[in-house]
Design a binder for these strands. Structure first.
Lengths: 198, 198, 198, 198
DNA sequence: TATGAATGAGAGTTCATTCAT
DNA sequence: AATGAATGAACTCTCATTCAT
């Protein structure tokens, strides 16, 4: 959670700023992180930040955009694979856990700071989030229609149940805990699939 | 989420302040809520606030203390009931959903603003939270030891899985949605119990 | 133009701030005057300024409101007097010169900084200004209708002609110049009346 | 007041910059206009601006120099004409009105932004302004000495009276108002001449 | 002749908190 | 028990200008 930021080396300034902001937003929260802290952590001046980003909020949005893009791409790949629905859902469910643990900072920011975005940007992020949710739900529904998943619970609720646990990871997961990220991922995917047994 | 606050009536000033603060913290976040806004919403002056509370942070802690107390009491009651373990877990799992929905503002604050507390107070809240978690975990383990719940997943993880979905409620639950709070609670408890089938 | 400001004495803080702001706005212009300079000149802190005024712009508006109020009152008094129209116009025309010279700072600010007000406040000031203009015009028209003033020039234009010269005072008038303010006032009023001879 | 600026065409870059700056200074004031806005309006980059002009202030001074040169030339022409003094003054007085209305942007900048120049440049502009004033005053005095103008008012004051109204034009004159610029000019010149009748 | 990344100082404003009353 | 004036530090953001290319 506290990787060092390259403050003067070869990494381009915008990336340096984004990395520093991500770390600080995750550690201290968006409102508690001052622009001054960000530029100091990135080894540049305020002017440089405002040369590349229109506002502090833009930095936050960039963090969102990056993680959303990544997760959507991965979900699409797993969902489109040529495998049985049970397997595709299990792998997608496990992958989102692994990816989230790999980017715990982004995840923490995502779920904690979304309400700091202006209504306009918030709407945009929610829309992309919705698209992600629906792709996942389609997998659940596909299995329900095929009769391999129980229909006892509405698919929407099933998805929210699983995403809740993903969301929660940044609260309790520690890299030095008893379980590796893959083990956690397998367990959580397993819980989902077991709950869906007819 | 936006109940009116009694700004001048008979409610004692400290309660009025707490109610106003809860609503505003949930709506706009802790950092985005100014002390001025709180006292205006409560119909008192700054001096009055600082007469009853030592700081803005104290208000936040009071919100936590209240919700933690309430949830611990309810969990204890369900866990100590004289019923089969399967039923006790189901009812505890459903109740925490209902209680959370009944106090969505508190829940939103809880999961979003904990890092705004000073390290000392944070530690205290985490300790109480831990106690709550462990009581819940004990229920799962009891069922596992009795052979009615699967032991495929560590009990800790099971608890985090469920709490994740509770935590997530404030993100997606809307009172005017298709499901009543009781229906949501039953579904989520059902998912938990189904996942625990041996 | 550079009266000393009471920085710590008995004058109430709002007045001190207004006096300091007036002097600095006149000397350096609104945009060139920083809030920091104002509070230093008034011997208070920024917090105190924002306790009494909502913004820097509010200070500017207060300067306007004060001078508009004063001038309207005086004009009304002269216009309502029980004297021949020729005399009433002459005295009103001379008085606005004297009053303007007495408050050269306000006048300089008035004509130089009005466009710094937000559209909303600008509109409000223009409306009050318009009222003043129309009262003055009514005097000219009264004389024209009575046949004592020439109708060769539209009354509106006559008023703008005179006010232009008043406006211009802050550009050239110096207290240590060859003419006293009363002499200047009499000359300018005389020019107006002479121009209006049939 | 808002002529479009040729942002990419054949007009040389310095002229384009000057035109854009003039329009923006008049619309928003000197301090409120950023160098960035000027170069964007002119369709060039900052580097280009600083290639041709040493500073933002230099742009302002160029605007002044241009209008001063123009007005001095025209006044000299009218003053030197071979006509009776009464006619020469009337025509000069009317011409400055027409020229000012033709360049209302420059006029607005002139009277509002002079104090934004550095002391050195300010002094220079005032000196040229003084020369213009004195040429005009000489006309008044010539008529007074010839007995065709009243000597009741000092010539200096007469000139300031007229210039005040010229200065004031940018405050009230609107191209779509009831009077054409020529009509306004004739009226204002007439007021001056009528005031000077012995 | 022109670019545009980067600077660094300073802008207006907000805010939790204190304290004399 | 309660007021509200005042503090002072921190906040986000702007801007004219420079300079390597």
């Amino acid at each position: 959670m506290a990787k060092a930021t390259d403050t003067s080396g070869t990494t381009p300034v915008p990336q340096r700023l984004l990395a520093a902001a991500t770390r600080l937003f995750a550690e201290n929260g968006y409102d508690r992180t001052s622009v001054q802290e960000i530029v100091e952590a990135a080894g540049v001046t305020k002017g440089a930040l405002y040369h590349y980003f229109g506002s502090k909020e833009d930095l936050l949005q960039e963090v969102y955009a990056r993680v959303l893009r990544l997760q959507q791409e991965r979900l699409d790949a797993f969902a489109d694979a040529d495998e049985p629905i049970e397997r595709r859902l299990r792998e997608a469910a496990a992958d989102v856990v692994v990816t989230t643990i790999d980017n715990l900072d982004d995840a923490a920011i995502f779920f904690r700071s979304m309400h700091h975005l202006s209504p306009e940007k918030n709407k945009q992020v929610r829309a992309e989030r919705r698209r992600y949710h629906e792709r996942f739900r389609a997998l659940v529904e596909e299995g329900q229609n095929a009769g391999v998943f129980s229909t006892a619970t509405p698919a929407d609720l099933v998805v929210d149940y699983h995403f809740g646990s993903v969301h929660h990871l940044s609260t309790w997961y520690r890299p030095d805990g008893p379980l590796t990220q893959q083990q956690v991922a397998d367990h959580l995917a397993d819980l989902l699939l077991r709950a869906l047994r007819p």
